[in-house]
């Protein structure tokens, strides 16, 4: 770095060049550092969506918190859903700091969620009608989330990488929590086994969708190129989906469960899993808040937010 000209006198091009040099060298960008506008906007979009998905993700599992079938399971799932809220907290703080120069706060994030401008992950729009779903979410939805999140552990944006490090450490507990529920059911009565299989069948398509479309030709837009260019992530959606198959398909099968795709197989020559594509139009529709539970969960989130408004007003030091 040249100490001769003041940084403030640098041209945008020089700043951009230095920025690229820094991320190429594996340096981390911090909240107050200069960053290109599309980097900031991509991060805001990615991280606020990630954060709000954690918050919305607490809701399908929330159903099973009071209902969990033993004291141990009640405690375990409470701790797990608490973590989801905690991950939301970490991620929203990261997003909020990025939005600060744009004059936006958590209030705006919540309002964007309620208005539909801010989307959340497809999986959290789905129904979770049985205890088997509670287990499946912990096992496979969290498993999928672990795959995408570990892929960003070395993200060029320091605050996000640090939040992910905390999150992934807790995800290890989540994965085992989910496995424990699933294992008990898979080794249990016929009724319990059926509960898991139903849950796998119900969630399969949503799990495939979780990683996003293979490329922009599927759904019209894809942020994956920008995120790879800026070293926020390394692998493509499809690579992550393949990783998920490799890690989890053998486990699913080993428990005597099946996946609801008779075309699914590992192609030795291509070294790839071959599978039936989910309905990407349905995916687009779901994330536009037209999923089976989208409205109800947004309604619950908004009702809680509005009901508690007096608390925030009462302690609002700006008043």
């Amino acid at each position: 770095m040249s100490g001769v000209i003041s940084y403030q006198e640098w041209t945008e091009e020089q700043k951009y060049e230095q920025f690229i040099k820094r991320i190429e060298a594996g340096e981390k960008i911090e909240a107050d550092d200069w960053m290109p506008e599309d980097y900031r906007l991509t991060l805001i979009k990615l991280i606020s969506m990630h954060g709000i998905s954690e918050i919305m993700g607490a809701l399908p599992e929330k159903e099973w918190v009071p209902k969990a079938p033993s004291l141990k399971r009640k405690l375990g799932i409470m701790a797990k859903v608490q973590d989801e809220m905690g991950h939301g907290q970490l991620l929203l703080r990261v997003a909020e700091d990025l939005m600060k120069p744009l004059g936006k706060t958590r209030e705006d994030i919540m309002q964007d969620l309620f208005s539909g401008r801010l989307k959340f992950h497809n999986v959290f729009h789905m129904e979770a009608p049985t205890w088997g779903d509670a287990g499946l979410i912990g096992w496979l939805v969290d498993g999928a989330a672990i795959i995408t999140q570990t892929n960003m552990l070395n993200a060029s944006y320091g605050p996000y990488a640090r939040a992910l490090k905390r999150i992934c450490a807790e995800e290890v507990f989540h994965a085992q929590h989910g496995e424990a529920i699933i294992m008990a059911l898979a080794e249990g009565t016929d009724e319990q086994r059926a509960m898991v299989q139903d849950a796998v069948n119900r969630w399969w398509e949503a799990l495939l969708m979780f990683f996003g479309p293979g490329d922009a030709t599927t759904t019209g837009t894809s942020k994956q190129d920008t995120t790879i260019k800026y070293k926020i992530r390394t692998k493509t959606n499809e690579e992550l989906r393949q990783d998920f198959f490799t890690k989890y398909i053998p486990r699913v099968l080993s428990l005597g469960l099946t996946v609801p795709d008779e075309t699914m197989q590992f192609d030795q020559q291509q070294n790839l899993w071959v599978y039936k594509q989910p309905d990407w139009n349905k995916f687009k529709d779901i994330i536009k808040n037209n999923g089976p539970k989208s409205k109800e969960r947004l309604g619950l989130r908004q009702t809680a937010y509005d009901t508690n408004e007096w608390v925030r007003d009462a302690l609002n030091t700006a008043n």
């Binding site: 706060t105 007003d313 302690l315 609002n316």
Partner: peptide
């Protein structure tokens, strides 16, 4: 009506 004052960092 915002909650800015509630959300101190």
């Amino acid at each position: 009506m915002g909650s800015e004052g509630f959300y101190q960092e």
